[in-house]
């Protein structure tokens, strides 16, 4: 069989657009997921029983069903939810790309929650006591003392999770969003060039993810030395 390089170069601008969406989706989901994940972690560790239960149920549910099913769930639910919020007559047209962002923020929050929970639990209790002893309240203790330490301890794990997220965003393909893989698949099917397009996508992902995880490993060693 012959390998058609020209098809890749011709499709580059379109693939680039898809790639940018992949990066945007990853970045927004990472930031949003980390934010909500931290809130969830605090809820799971709070002394309020109902708050604990609800947060744990959410996290466990999210973690026990496949991401593909979660994506289908939200693709179906988001318009209905928006409709009930806005009171519109018909469910609004949200679009696959925006639905995907909401989905990934809420899905990743469950995974980031568990990372942050482990991070918070790794901080000795004495830190909380000494912060309270200084007269700080709960929110100050968390914001100024505990979370910064937990966050720093967990940086390598968080970054590894973001690399996984970067790969997982490719699954928006199932709702026909045009991310990097989606763009490649569309070109592949239009021009019947599946081999070229999928190999190209695989190589790009491999080079990026391999270098990123290498960098994380390097960083991890550096952090280990500083401690």
């Amino acid at each position: 069989m012959d390998f058609d390089v020209a098809i890749i170069t011709a499709a580059l601008p379109y693939l680039w657009k898809g790639f940018l969406y992949t990066v945007e989706l990853t970045a927004v989901s990472a930031v949003g997921g980390l934010f909500f994940g931290t809130l969830l972690a605090l809820a799971r560790l709070s002394s309020l029983k109902p708050l604990q239960t609800v947060a744990a149920a959410y996290v466990n549910l999210m973690r026990s069903i496949p991401l593909v099913l979660v994506i289908f769930w939200f693709f179906f639910l988001v318009p209905l939810m928006l409709q009930s919020v806005t009171g519109a007559e018909r469910p609004p047209q949200v679009g696959a790309e925006r639905t995907a962002i909401i989905t990934f923020i809420l899905f990743e929050a469950a995974y980031f929650c568990e990372i942050m929970r482990a991070g918070i639990q790794s901080i000795p209790r004495g830190q909380v006591w000494s912060a309270y002893a200084l007269g700080l309240n709960y929110s100050q203790t968390m914001r100024l003392v505990i979370l910064p330490q937990a966050f720093r301890n967990m940086i390598p794990v968080l970054l590894t999770q973001i690399i996984i997220l970067f790969q997982d965003t490719s699954l928006v393909y199932v709702i026909s969003a045009t991310d990097f893989v989606g763009a490649a698949a569309k070109v592949a099917q239009r021009d019947s060039k599946l081999v070229e397009m999928y190999l190209f996508v695989a190589v790009v992902y491999f080079v990026l993810c391999y270098s990123l995880s290498f960098a994380v490993k390097h960083l991890q060693r550096k952090i280990a030395v500083i401690r």
């Binding site: 069989m1 999928y198 491999f206 391999y210």
Partner: peptide, 23 residues
């Protein structure tokens, strides 16, 4: 380990189903 860990599973699925048989 690095090969299978650094390519999205979806892309690997396409490779096994669409690409490898071509070779």
């Amino acid at each position: 380990v690095e090969l299978f860990r650094n390519i999205p599973l979806l892309v690997q699925m396409f490779l096994w189903y669409f690409v490898i048989p071509e070779f």
